[in-house]
């Protein structure tokens, strides 16, 4: 028994000692040391991990900049706590990647009170931040919508829509809204929305598509709120032997989707969000703010539409995403 409790003490002490060694990398006493907080709502997926890595990568060139990175684990309360911890740590500036989160007023209030500038990356909130760098999901949706309209032509057809969910995820909602903004003007296109969410994943995209295929004897086009779901949907369509019947369009620029587009399959288009670029831009935006620059409130990064014409330009076989 005593050995057991001793073991516990040893483990915890060792762990903390290990933490200590990583934290005591003392910056040059002469140079001013700069502390940056990078808080993500989630580091679940390569897209968000890529953004976190890009910020660290940007900072790694400077010996006196330390990045404190936190992961909210997909929980708004944890993200809020993480930011509080970093305020206590007296970071000079914050970068927040809010994932699907709509707003986090209390954290922004606390940061404002502490006089810490905030750069939002990827996810724009309704106010209370210093600057935002990232994509506009509505425009990305519009680009897809235009592609679909062009391809279906004047005779129109049936368009199936697979949403990621949950219902409060406005990233997905904005993509679909943008797409419908264009498609809705063509009366010959009939939109069928899947009643179930694809949960942003390939396996659920496959399942939702199977149900759509069963319920609809004819479909001309499929729109998914991200590539993962459309890759699953494409699989379901192939399994049903209906590949020639329809084409697919999505958003993200995932490696596998680019491959499908390049190969001339029925995967028609995607819109590219480059998380590496977003992360780097966010880092440099914060640095110029800390240097005293007055930034624009919002900077929308372009998300090019990718089709068979240009897919090869964006395809990187070594890409994380």
């Amino acid at each position: 028994m005593n050995r057991k409790s001793l073991a516990i003490l040893v483990v915890i002490a060792t762990f903390l000692a290990a933490c200590g060694t990583t934290s005591t990398v003392a910056p040059n006493a002469q140079a001013k040391s700069i502390k940056i907080g990078m808080s993500s709502y989630t580091l679940c997926c390569s897209y968000f991990i890529g953004m976190d890595k890009a910020v660290k990568d940007g900072a790694s060139a400077y010996s006196n900049i330390t990045v404190y990175s936190t992961d909210g684990g997909g929980d708004a309360a944890k993200l809020n706590s993480d930011i509080e911890d970093l305020i206590a740590k007296k970071v000079d500036g914050m970068i927040i990647s809010g994932g699907p989160l709509e707003q986090l007023p209390s954290a922004l209030d606390d940061l404002k009170k502490a006089g810490i500038p905030v750069v939002l990356v990827d996810r724009q909130w309704s106010g209370g931040y210093t600057s935002y760098v990232g994509p506009d999901n509505f425009i990305i949706g519009q680009q897809d919508g235009q592609f679909i309209v062009n391809k279906l032509g004047s005779k129109g057809g049936i368009l199936a829509v697979i949403k990621g969910g949950p219902a409060d995820n406005s990233i997905g909602l904005n993509r679909t809204k943008g797409m419908l903004d264009i498609v809705g003007k063509v009366t010959a296109i009939k939109v069928v929305t899947a009643p179930d969410f694809g949960n942003w994943s390939t396996d659920d995209g496959l399942k939702v598509m199977e149900n759509l295929l069963a319920a609809n004897p004819h479909i001309d086009a499929v729109f998914c709120e991200n590539d993962s779901m459309c890759l699953g949907a494409q699989r379901a369509i192939a399994d049903a032997g209906r590949t020639a019947e329809m084409f697919l369009c999505a958003v993200d620029g995932q490696k596998e989707a680019l491959q499908q587009i390049m190969n001339g399959s029925n995967y028609g288009c995607t819109g590219r969000n480059d998380s590496d670029q977003i992360g780097h831009q966010g880092f440099y935006r914060l640095m110029s703010i800390l240097a005293g620059g007055t930034p624009p409130l919002n900077t929308i990064l372009p998300s090019p539409l990718i089709t068979i014409e240009n897919a090869v330009k964006y395809y990187d076989p070594n890409s994380l995403f």
């Binding site: 708004a76 309360a77 699907p100 989160l101 709509e102 209390s106 409060d168």
Partner: peptide
């Protein structure tokens, strides 16, 4: 208390608590 603390209530709040 959490709604008060965060200043926003998401329907997806609390998953895994």
């Amino acid at each position: 208390l959490l709604a008060s603390r965060l200043g926003i209530a998401q329907p997806s709040l609390g998953a895994g608590f």
